[in-house]
Structures are given as C-alpha cells and as structure tokens.
C-alpha cells in the first residue's frame, strides 16, 4: 500500500542578511564580503532548504593575559602581537572569519586609545578575512573605544560588538558613522533579544546591520537555555517577526574556562576543550546560528567537516 508522507512547513518569514567585510573594489581590503543569514527555513525542518552554510569565526585578542592558557600555550609567542596572531590564524587555522577581542581595554584605568587604533589597523593589515571587533565592556570608555575601532576600520564593513540593553548607543553610533554592523547581545532570552533589536532600530540601526548574539552559555553552564533561546529566536523570525529576523552569532566564550575543561587530566585538557567547543558549536548551528565562534584552533577541522556534511561542501544544501 503505497502512501505519501507530507513534510509540514507552515511559515512565511525570512531571515535577513548581513554583509561582513568589504573587498578592495568595495573600498575595503578584505578578501571577500561575506553574507550571513538569509533563507526561509529552520535548518532541515519541514524539508525546506537549510539556508546558507554557517561560518566559523576564530576568536583571538590583543592582551593574552586574559585568554585561556590552553590556547596561548598552544599558539606560542605569536599571541603577544595581535597582528602576528591574526596572520597565523588566517594562514594555519583557516577559519571563515576573525573575531578580535580588545581585551586590553579591560585593564583597570585603560585610556590608551591611540594604541588601540594602531592595534586594529595592524590586524587589518596582517589579515584579509572579514573581521569582527569586540570593544570595551565598560560603559565609561565605550564611546571612545567604539569610535576608535569604528574609525580604524572605516570602509572594511566590520561587525562591531557588543551592544546590550543599557549600553547600545555608543556602539550603534560608531557603526552608523563608519558603515559597520552591530552585534546585539541579550541574556539568553528571546524577548530580551527582540527588545534590544527594537531599541537599536529606533536608534537608527537598520535590520540588515544587526547580528543577534543570544549569549551562548558553555555546555553544562547555560547551554540548556541558550539552545532553546536560539531555536525560539529563529522560529519567531520564520513566523514573521521582523524584529528577530536577523542572523545569529554564537560563541560559548566560557568553554575553555569551565571546571570540566580546566581540571581535566593535563594529557586530555586540549581534547576536552575541543570536544566541549565542538559539541556546543554543532548544536548551535542546528539551532539556527549563522556564525559559530571557537577559540581552540583544533576545533575548526572537525567542526568544518560536520558543517560540510550537513550543508554540503559548497553550501546551500547538498
């Protein structure tokens, strides 16, 4: 008895697109202008096309004292120079994007904005991948930090982080002044994510310049909430909520610091870090993230194979 099983699909919304990076032709110096987001389906749900292939961003910083020793020991001296590190990452680890944290701004009493500008410029000179820049986390220096990053990257179509409820005006202003996009981070809640996007929209940041960061807790430390927050955000967008129809970036920044990894047997610590990042990232892309971030270089290869297997080598489904 032949029968036909239908695959159910009942939504109409579309995910917006955001472009990161500008090529020479477009007035920047990146090797490519990457488009993230787009598509009108949940990954693999309802038989819809899985959308664009998610991308991998590698995270590094300008002050390695505030970075996990698991990574800095593996990377070696190169971590002491952001430009060198950027060049090595691009050549050796080959992620799709770079995410650069200005951890130096987190030092108490930080005021050296001219150095900050030079650091961002150097990273841009030594690398060609589209760049995400994470500025300060202190409202007192937000305004200067973001203006400085924004200006240093003018024309490069950076993705600037991070706007939060209560401190979004500085980063939004810098993004609008210098043609960048903004990461909007809210604490693991679909409603708070939406609220921040509305606030940004009303400040003048258009939807195609916003990337949602729903805050990804590390596996075992909040990921249970993050996973559903991502699903809900994506789902709301597909049901037509335009204030949530932006691509998502997911970064479980705590993965390398949590107890399970930190206290792992020294011989297994590296592998533990990689598995922790891998399981989180694979789950994040299936929950709808367009960009997943990692800090351990060895996570990139297995993660890329998984994503290739899911989306096909060329992207857009196999």
């Amino acid at each position: 008895m032949p029968m036909k099983v239908d695959i159910i699909s009942e939504w109409t919304g579309e995910i917006g697109e955001v472009t990161i990076g500008a090529t020479k032709k477009e007035g920047g110096s990146r090797c490519a202008a990457i488009v993230i987001g787009g598509g009108s389906g949940f990954p693999f749900l309802g038989g819809s096309a899985p959308g664009r292939k998610p991308l991998i961003a590698f995270e590094f910083c300008d002050d390695p004292k505030l970075w996990s020793p698991i990574v800095t020991e593996l990377e070696g001296d190169v971590v002491n120079d952001a430009g060198d590190w950027a060049a090595r990452v691009e050549e050796l680890h080959r992620p799709d994007l770079l995410r650069f944290y200005l951890t130096s701004t987190r030092r108490r009493g930080f005021q050296d904005f001219s150095q900050l500008r030079r650091t961002v410029e150097e990273v841009l000179e030594r690398s060609t991948l589209p760049l995400i820049v994470e500025g300060s986390i202190d409202p007192a220096i937000d305004s200067e930090t973001f203006l400085c990053c924004g200006e240093a990257g003018e024309g490069e179509r950076l993705l600037l982080g991070t706007a939060e409820e209560g401190r979004y005006r500085s980063v939004a202003a810098a993004a609008m002044a210098y043609g960048h996009s903004v990461i909007a981070q809210s604490p693991i809640d679909v409603n708070l994510a939406k609220q921040l996007n509305i606030l940004l929209r009303e400040t003048g940041v258009p939807h195609d310049r916003i990337v949602i960061d729903p805050y990804t807790g590390a596996l075992g430390y909040g990921f249970e909430y993050s996973y559903s927050a991502m699903e809900r955000i994506r789902f709301a967008a597909l049901k037509g909520d335009e204030d949530l129809a932006m691509p998502m970036i997911s970064s479980a920044i705590d993965s390398l610091n949590i107890k399970e990894v930190r206290e792992a047997d020294p011989g297994q610590r590296g592998e533990m870090a990689v598995k922790w990042e891998l399981y989180t990232a694979v789950s994040s892309v299936i929950a709808g993230a367009s960009v997943v971030c990692v800090r351990h270089p060895e996570t990139i290869v297995p993660l890329r194979s998984a994503i290739d297997s899911l989306w096909g080598k060329t992207g857009g489904g196999d």
């Binding site: 596996l219 990921f223 792992a264 297994q268 592998e271 533990m272 399981y279 989180t280 789950s283």
Partner: peptide, 16 residues
Amino acid sequence: LSIPSRNALLTLRQNI
C-alpha cells in the same frame, strides 16, 4: 568514546 567525548556528550544530553 574517549573521556572528553563522553563527558561532552553526557553534558549535552543533560542540557537538552
């Protein structure tokens, strides 16, 4: 499974 794979897997399962 290696210990790291097992731990990550069990933790993910607990989370989900």
